[in-house]
Each structure stands twice: as C-alpha cells, then as structure tokens.
Design a binder for these strands. Structure first.
Lengths: 228, 228
DNA sequence: TACTATTTTTAGTAGATTAAAAAATTAATT
DNA sequence: AATTAATTTTTTAATCTACTAAAAATAGTA
C-alpha cells in the first residue's frame, strides 16, 4: 500500500541530518556534497534523494540537488532533536567533554525510544541548546533560532558573546576548548589581519580576559551574537 | 588473513546472549530453540553456529547443538555486561520501571562505546547486580554467582530472600512488581498445592508482610537464597 | 561546438536471510 | 533388532537489500 519510508534507518537519518545542515548554512545540497559527507558513492545518494522525494521529504530536481519540504524539515527535526538532546545529556550527566559527545550521540540517536527521549528531556529541564550552542528543536519540531553572525564578520573593537560552534570535528573542538571558546563566553575582536589572515581576539569576561590568536578558517565557524 | 568474526553485529551478540542464557539454566542449546528466541529461521542459526565454531566461541556437534568454549563465554560476558549495566542505569538514573529496562537496553547495548560503559560503571559505583538480580560480569568477564534455588523448591514454612527473577517478559515483571517480588525482598512459603498448583507465600519484611498466591509457572523463575 | 564536471542510470556485487530439499536423529512399531 | 514414521537439523539454491563501478546522460563553460 504505502511505498514511502517507514522507519528511519541510520543511513536515512544521517542523510536527512546532512541535508538539513547544508541547507541551514545556505549551501546547495548536491549529490556529491552529500555523498562525501556520508562516505558513500554518488550513486547511493541519488537513490536516497529519489526515495526522499517519493516520501515527500524533498523536492528533487535531477542534476540540481534537493531541498527539504516542510514535511522533510519536520523529519529532520526529529533526528536532530534526538541527537542534540543526547549530546547535552552526555556532557551534563555523564561528564563527556564537548568534543566527544557528537560521535557517541551519532550512534545512540538511531536506537533510543520516544520514552528515552522524554526522560532525557525532563531530566535536563527541557533544554533549548546543546553543548555546541546548537538549538534543540522542540517535540513539535520548532527551533528557536538565535540570530548571530560569524566571528569573522565582527568589526575591530566590537564585543559579543559566543552563540554556537558550527563544527563537529573533535580535534577542532578540543582546540577551541583550550582557548576557552565555549558558547556563552564573551569575546572581543582586537584585530583582523588582511587576506583571510588570523584574528586577534579577547576571550572571557572582563575580569579575566585572555588574548588569543585564531585562524580565519576556524573563526568562520564560530557564531557570535552582538549586544543590542 | 583472519577468517573469524571481528565486530559483533546485533544478531551475533543477541545469539551469544541466548546461548549463554540457555546454558546457564542447564538447557540443551539446540538450533530450533535458539531460532525461536531470536525470531529467525533454523537455517540462519545453523549458519551462525558454524561461524561461532570457526571463531572458536562454541563447540558445534552437528545435529546436537552447541556449547560455549571459555573464549565464547568471555565474549558472551562482554555482551551481557553491557546489557546489565545499561539496565541498571536506566532504572536508577532515568527512572525506568524494571519491566521496561530490558527492551531499551537490548537496543542500546549494540552501540555504546567502551568509554560509555566505563562512565556508567563509575557512576553506578561499580555495581554487581542489575534490577532483576542478575549478576553484572566484571570488566574481566568474571561473574559472582550467588547460590540460590527456585522458589518452587522451598519447603513449607521456610523463609528466604528473593535473589533474582529469571524472566524478562515485561508483563510478567510488571505483575511480579505488583506483588512486591523484587530482588532482596524477604519471602516465606506458606503452602505449596499439589500437582504443580499455585503457591501461597508471604512477601515483605516481618512488620508488613502480605500473603500472596503465585502460580507455579511464575514461581519457577524466581530464584531465592536461603539463610545459612 | 566541444570539453569538462557532475549526476543519473544500469548492471552487478556482497551479505544476511530464508524456503525447500536432503540428511541425520529420534521415537514408534513390528 | 529392523523398519517405518516423525522430527530436527543441515544444505542448497534463491531472494532481498544496500551498495557501488562503470556507462550514459545532462549541465555548465570556454
């Protein structure tokens, strides 16, 4: 009767996550970009795109990639909610460092029940952001997007607060942690070197600020919010 | 080079668990008995038995089933340790009722990392029994078996303590919970009716005992320890 | 128009599973 | 004991799913 996808296999939910993440950053969601991120062949992604289109999760324009439909976005939200709730739980309740939560959550998210999710949610006090500052969608699939901009877009002398880190690479996160660059940390831009050169920033609250140098590559993935 | 099984797929670890559980109860581990418990065909189990034999986990006598080698027992212990640690964690930390922990642990046990296991272990204070009274093997695969006997083997008038419940059926556990029959609960046998009839028992410590009637079928799976 | 990139299609591989056939075991009957 | 019947297990051949390499189609570009 129903030809569409019923249960979300790990591959399917991973693919949904990738599509959503790319779309969120305003990138074109092409076959090759997704295949590279998932570590599978292009052919596999083409087939996934077709299945997703049949399920009504994406609009698929052959040779031009996909973009999520409202239904697909809801599906993606379910997956991302599981993932981010788990990340926060691992960090808070089990003492995981923030650079390790992603990999563990990636495995757990495929098997936890709705009941498990609800218990986590309650235990964490119905949180709205994960350890990287990424918003946790509500049960209904609503995200409270906090407006921000890349650290690289700040003007010299400006102050702001770290909102989120859009990178899940363990080593990079580990390094940023050493610099003290966690969500909710105050930062100020001292100097931006030309030609995509490194930034000089002040990290921490005014009483114990520390000057740090940060490559533009990394800074691009640090989202900050300016005070009104 | 190495033909033997490297990573434990869910099917493989589930099969190991079933073999161990049957062997622990002194039952013959036959193809059909295992296939029924796993919900797969006999042919599948025959193939699994062969793989296990090649890996050195079981002695396989064709047409006569398998029994675990010391190596196989160690492998089974790893799987069971994961499972029982998770069960206890779900009950203690997330407030799961004891009749629900089994199903959730069954899914989680296949994906958790060694680091996750260690964090659970430490957080729970290096426990030795799970919510059903089943022993949690140590990291080295050692189980501290507490001697006991089925409730049905008690003599009338005798007192004892519930040691473990050898049943993972959610509904049965739920019912036993209503009767107050948890591990460490004192019980006394008042009367055993003939021909496998129901037992009359006293449940709870002497100040607030309650008389209950219990079918022999259920009582067979309740293991108690007699005082010295 | 021709060349390069990317994407899709096609045909086929590999792993897990099973239905059905064949073999072995067990139990019953003579 | 020998024979038959019933049961269980194993083998075989085939299916189904997820995946990919290579070929074909399409899009973008000089």
């Amino acid at each position: 009767m129903d030809e569409s996808i019923q249960e979300l296999s790990p591959r399917i939910s991973d693919c949904l996550k990738v599509i959503y993440a790319m779309q969120e950053r305003g990138q074109k969601v092409s076959t090759s970009a997704v295949s590279e991120r998932l570590g599978v062949s292009d052919a596999t992604v083409t087939l996934l795109f077709k299945d997703f289109a049949v399920a009504g999760w994406v609009e698929h324009t052959p040779y031009h990639g996909v973009h999520l439909t409202p239904l697909g976005e809801r599906k993606a939200m379910e997956v991302i909610r599981h993932h981010r709730l788990l990340e926060l739980y691992l960090a808070r309740a089990l003492g995981y460092s923030w650079d390790k939560v992603h990999a563990e959550a990636d495995k757990l998210e495929h098997v936890i029940s709705e009941e498990f999710e609800e218990k986590l949610d309650a235990l964490l006090g119905y949180p709205t952001v994960d350890p990287h500052g990424d918003p946790i969608p509500s049960k209904e699939g609503v995200v409270s997007l906090r407006k921000g901009q890349a650290l690289t877009a700040m003007t010299e002398g400006q102050s702001a607060t770290v909102l989120r880190i859009q990178d899940q690479d363990s080593e990079k996160l580990c390094y940023l942690g050493e610099l003290g660059l966690y969500p909710d940390t105050p930062v100020a831009l001292v100097k931006r070197n030309p030609f995509g050169g490194p930034l000089v920033i002040l990290v921490g609250s005014t009483d114990k600020q520390k000057e740090q140098i940060l490559g533009a590559e990394l800074a691009e993935h640090i989202i900050v919010s300016l005070p009104e």
